[in-house]
Design a binder for these strands. Structure first.
Lengths: 112, 112
DNA sequence: CAGTATCCACAATGATACTG
DNA sequence: CAGTATCATTGTGGATACTG
C-alpha cells in the first residue's frame, strides 16, 4: 500500500472519533452494555442531545449496537459490536497518554 | 476543577489532540524534523492558517519544538520533543484503526 | 425511561489577501 | 519561506421544553 494512505487513516480515525465525547463513551461501553441513563451518569457534563447524537454516530459507524426491549417503560441497551471492540487499544493508549499528560501538567503547576 | 477519574483522561487527550489535523501533523513529525512548507505538502488540504494554529497549540503543549534558523530567507523547523514522542503509540493505534476502518468500508461499498 | 425539537453560543475550520 | 490578518462558513456543544 501507498504511504500516502497511511497518513490519511489517522485523519479517518479522528474524523470518526475526534469529538469530545465519543471515545469517552466507548471507554465506558468497554465495561459492558449500558443503558441511556447509565451513560448519562457515567459521563457527567454530557447533554442528552450530545449523548443521543454521538451514540447514533457510533451506531451508524457500526461500532455500537442499540437494543430496545419493549417493556414499559422501554429499556434501551447500548453495547459495543465486535467492530467497536477494536477500539479497546485506542482507548487504552489515549487513557494512558491522558494520565501522563495530567500528571506532567500537575508537576509543572506544582513546580511554579 | 474536574474530577480526576480514569475516564476523564481519555477526554483530556482528546481535548488536546481531537482536532482534525493535530494527530496527523504529529504522525508526519514522527519521521523527523520538518519545515513549514514540508508539512503543507505532506498534509494536502490543510490551510496555512490551521497549520500555524495547530503547530502553535502543539508547541504550547510542549509536544513540538520550533526552531528558527536566521538565514535569508528564514528556515523554520518543527520537531517533536521527547514528550511529543510519547504520541508514537497513539498515532500507531489510530493509524491501524483508520486503516481497518477504511478497508471495512471499502468492502461494504463494494458489496452494495 | 429514553429520547425529540428548537434555538442559540461559540469554537473550529476555510478562503483569500497580504508581508518581512 | 513562513507566516498574519480578516472575514465567512461550518461544526460542536449546551439549554430548555416537550413526548410516547
Amino acid at each position: 500500500m501507498k504511504e500516502s494512505l497511511t497518513g490519511c487513516s489517522v485523519e479517518e480515525s479522528m474524523r470518526l472519533l475526534g469529538g469530545r465525547w465519543r471515545l469517552l463513551l466507548v471507554s465506558y461501553l468497554l465495561d459492558g452494555p449500558k443503558r441511556f441513563n447509565d451513560l448519562r451518569r457515567d459521563v457527567p457534563g454530557i447533554s442528552q442531545r450530545m449523548l443521543t447524537l454521538d451514540l447514533r454516530a457510533l451506531e451508524d459507524a457500526g461500532l455500537v449496537k442499540r437494543t430496545v426491549y419493549p417493556t414499559s417503560p422501554v429499556k434501551v441497551e447500548y453495547d459495543l459490536t465486535e467492530d467497536g471492540k477494536r477500539l479497546h487499544p485506542v482507548v487504552d493508549v489515549m487513557k494512558e497518554f491522558g494520565l501522563w499528560l495530567k500528571q506532567r501538567d500537575a508537576d509543572k503547576t506544582a513546580a511554579r
